[in-house]
Design a binder for these strands. Sequence first.
DNA 1: AAGTACATTCTACATTTGTAGAATACGATT
DNA 2: AATCGTATTCTACAAATGTAGAATGTACTT
Lengths: 127, 127
Amino acid sequence: MNKTSKISDAEWQVMRILWEKAPITSSEIVEILRLRTGWGPTTIYTLINRLVNKKAITIDKGSSPNVCRPLLSQQGCRREERNFFLKKVYDGSLNLLLMNILEDEELSDVEIDELKHILDGSKNKER
Amino acid sequence: MNKTSKISDAEWQVMRILWEKAPITSSEIVEILRLRTGWGPTTIYTLINRLVNKKAITIDKGSSPNVCRPLLSQQGCRREERNFFLKKVYDGSLNLLLMNILEDEELSDVEIDELKHILDGSKNKER
DNA sequence: AAGTACATTCTACATTTGTAGAATACGATT
DNA sequence: AATCGTATTCTACAAATGTAGAATGTACTT
């Protein structure tokens, strides 16, 4: 019954900081997000708490500025979110997504080559 | 002040049908989604109405099974959603997204070549 | 005209989300 | 111990979302 409750958009902001800087104190998170988004401190504490409830992070209470760290991996959350998005918007078609990006964004040849290079890097990875 | 209100996940299901089959009657939408998702008819009508309020679709009242059609393009909505997702989850980095997909999914060489081919198709499109 | 079945709207309600004020707790300072 | 500023929790609240029952409208069939 592990109904992995979804991480909301605002909560993602918190997670991103956690993944980048954990272990990090709540107050530091508050400070970073305050600057980055303009949210009030309590707003940010609320988000932090909700993430604790969702079991996405833990807080070591004990030392005063509490220390937080993620319980869910960025990799995993990204994957989850990506698959959800891909299914919802592109019916799961990666090809379609890519075509669409190419149509909409003006990628330079250099950028396109970068992408191709990334693709090359992953051929024949398995036996 | 055009605060383009976001299309919710459930509403996307409706939009998808609209984009694929418009003009289409509400009852047909109801029927398709009822089968596809198991939602009750009123649930689906609610979604349809919310989309009308969001100015995402219109309904020609007049004929009894009303006829609906989208007001927003699939292309545009996809773009919006994609950019939002990309920013939120990948800090806007397409390269990172692609690398991540390759790490997580086991794409066959054929699939990878397809992607490369899509990329090739879009080089030198502009002068 | 009445009946019946389908179509549509209204109303409702629990959750989740964004947002934050009020209250309290903790630690350093007088 | 009293004080003050920082840290944290509690409480709150409106809007959005998922979900649908009740009520009403419409059109075809007796």
